[in-house]
Nucleic acid binder design. Structure first.
Length: 188
DNA sequence: AGAGCGATGGCCT
DNA sequence: GGCCATCGCTCTA
């Protein structure tokens, strides 16, 4: 089952925790890939580390749109990162998807990534975007109706909170969530 | 295992 | 001009 709008349209930290164990699925002409979400980070509207902190711009416009859409941005000039937009429209909050456990389409992921080891296919936000074949055209895409979607988890997942990675502002806040014990997270 | 660093482009001051 | 919500290579141990 696809997650519904009401799932995303809630408190962003809750959504970040509950996305653990859910499945990110992308259907492309090349084939289908899917992975279990094992690592997320919450970015809030009053959060100096969030792209939305200084208000709406051309780049971050999707963050202010309706919940359940994608926010895809260019990072360090060469990688893209994928976020799920949360909270009410006009509130700039989102959840960064940082790592997946590959579940389906492993060979297609290997081809796209140029490596074979399953643990390294999707263990970082830039990596999983490449493995899943996601491009900038997905910025603003609706996860309820498009080729990119998230399916509900089949069982409750035990999460663990820790500080977010690769940021300098508000770096101490425990807004990173990992699936406890997973070998597919970006780091421990 | 861990530190250092270059690639590369959009956005902000 | 400087700063990044990154990655993978290289060097040192």
């Amino acid at each position: 089952m696809r997650l519904e709008r009401t799932f995303y349209e809630r408190n962003t930290v809750e959504v970040a925790k509950e996305l653990l164990g859910c499945y990110l699925v992308h259907e492309t002409p090349e084939g289908k890939t899917a992975g279990k979400i094992v690592e997320t980070e919450a970015y809030l509207s009053d959060d100096p580390a969030s792209h939305s902190f200084r208000g709406k711009t051309k780049r971050n416009a999707s963050m202010f749109g309706p919940a359940g859409k994608a926010y895809v941005y260019l990072s360090y000039g060469m990688y893209r990162c994928f976020n799920v937009v949360t909270a009410k429209e006009h509130v700039g909050e989102a959840v960064l998807i940082r790592a997946l456990e590959p579940v389906e389409g492993l060979d297609l992921m290997r081809k796209r990534r140029g490596i074979s080891e399953a643990e390294k296919l999707c263990n970082g936000p830039g990596k999983l975007v490449i493995a899943m074949g996601m491009g900038k055209e997905l910025d603003g895409a609706d996860l309820l109706t498009g080729p990119l979607t998230i399916r509900a988890r089949d069982s409750l997942a035990e999460s663990q909170a820790s500080p977010r990675i690769g940021i300098t502002k508000a770096a101490e806040l425990p807004l990173r969530f990992t699936l406890k014990g997973s070998r597919f997270v970006s780091r421990n």
